[in-house]
């Protein structure tokens, strides 16, 4: 089994990748955005099919838009649009359809992260089919089955949190911070701080 890369090798590779991503794919490096697109596949396909079904029927377009608005923004937004209940609050929803990259492209991107990990694991001799992620986690969870449940909840926190914060270690941490975004710097400080506190707590719990 070979050693991990040194800090400067890893930094150069990760930094170079962050730059290349912008130049090659014309979008910032960010994985949670790809997750959102892939997880919204059904809605996006439904929208696409609905769009294909439209001819020149403006009534059909209007009613579909009304339905979509209602589903995304709620009745409040319709009142606001019609002027029946004026409100100053900005009402917006997450919209997964914002660039030309298709769901398929995002899915391929995610799939090849797996392939990259697999190739590297085979190359370095780290590949092994394992039911245990870490002895520490199993010990802390007091059993293998319980550790899997913890991973499920941990994963849910990651999925929910990254969508709520609109970014993760790559989107906020690498791309956002590198571009001097205040929102990303704040997000990175908080998620890193939260992770440090939780990891320290877990470490102390294992020792006690």
């Amino acid at each position: 089994m070979t050693e991990y890369w040194s800090w400067w090798q890893g930094g150069l590779a990760l930094g170079g990748l962050t730059i290349l991503f912008r130049l090659v794919l014309h979008r910032p490096l960010g994985v949670s955005g790809s997750w959102l697109r892939v997880a919204s596949t059904r809605q996006e396909f439904a929208a696409e099919q609905q769009a294909n079904g439209f001819t020149n029927d403006t009534n059909a377009v209007s009613s579909a838009l009304m339905e979509a608005t209602l589903a995304q923004f709620g009745e409040e937004a319709l009142h606001k649009l019609s002027g029946t209940q004026p409100e100053n609050k900005t009402v917006q929803a997450i919209n997964p359809v914002t660039t030309s990259a298709t769901i398929g492209q995002h899915a391929v991107f995610l799939l090849f992260i797996f392939v990259g990990g697999l190739l590297m694991a085979l190359y370095t001799g780290r590949f092994s089919i394992d039911l245990e992620l870490s002895k520490m986690l199993t010990s802390l969870s007091r059993g293998l089955a319980a550790s899997w449940v913890h991973l499920l909840f941990g994963g849910m926190m990651v999925g929910f949190g990254t969508q709520m914060a609109a970014g993760c270690t790559s989107g906020h941490g690498l791309s956002g911070c590198a571009q001097g975004s205040r929102a990303s710097m704040l997000a990175t400080a908080i998620f890193f701080g939260g992770a440090v506190i939780m990891a320290t707590f877990m470490s102390l719990a294992v020792k006690s």
């Binding site: 992260i113 990990g117 909840f153 926190m157 990651v158 929102a183 998620f191 990891a199 877990m202």
Partner: peptide
């Protein structure tokens, strides 16, 4: 930003994965 990042950070420590790392762990 604040509640989402905090939730993500804590989840990251629990499962040892962010949205990209989970695929790499599967590859391993």
């Amino acid at each position: 930003i604040i509640p989402g990042s905090l939730l993500f950070g804590m989840g990251w420590a629990i499962c040892g994965a962010c949205p990209a790392i989970v695929f790499v762990q599967l590859g391993l």
